[in-house]
Amino acid sequence: MKKTAGMTGLFHDPDAVLAAAAEIRRAGYRKFDFHTPYPLHGLDEAMGVKRTVLPWISLGAGVLGTAVALHLQWWTGAVDYPLVIGGKPLFALPPSIPIAFELTVLFCAIATVVGMFALNGLPRWFSKWQHDEHFTRSTDDAFVVTVDAGDPHYDTDQTQALLESLGAEQVRVVEYEDQ
């Protein structure tokens, strides 16, 4: 069954994108996005994108990495199998720092990458917009606006008028096959 994904249009000028983003937001839309070949500076503010929680995930994982590394070195060396090597203490902080640091970085990096893709809902190998030609342009040379049909303000005529008034080219409705 064919379903409406929403409305899409093309921009070529980065300044027009920023202005349009602010206007669409002012008109009350929330389920809209710009697909761009590279990140545009200032678009987050214009669209009103909320700051991501990702840094907190990274921090938490980093702290966990430190804790795991210190616990591992203390438990294996001083609890499970105490073995005096060269008259050194069974556990001491200075020689435990290198591995604690490395595991902090490792845990933090994994959480950052996995967290970023997970928060973005990726991997997801299907997009409602993927069969539209605009979508292919968005990884090449154009900035593509998409307004989701699920937005309460979405209205075929009004949304089209709004996008065209903001300078969007080739504004059209996109449909997709719902499995």
């Binding site: 710009f34 697909h35 990726l122």
Partner: peptide, 16 residues
């Protein structure tokens, strides 16, 4: 991974 270049994705991407 189905990257769409959506700005809401770029936002987290740049942070990462």
């Amino acid at each position: 991974l189905g990257w769409t270049g959506a700005n809401r994705h770029w936002h987290r991407y740049e942070k990462a």
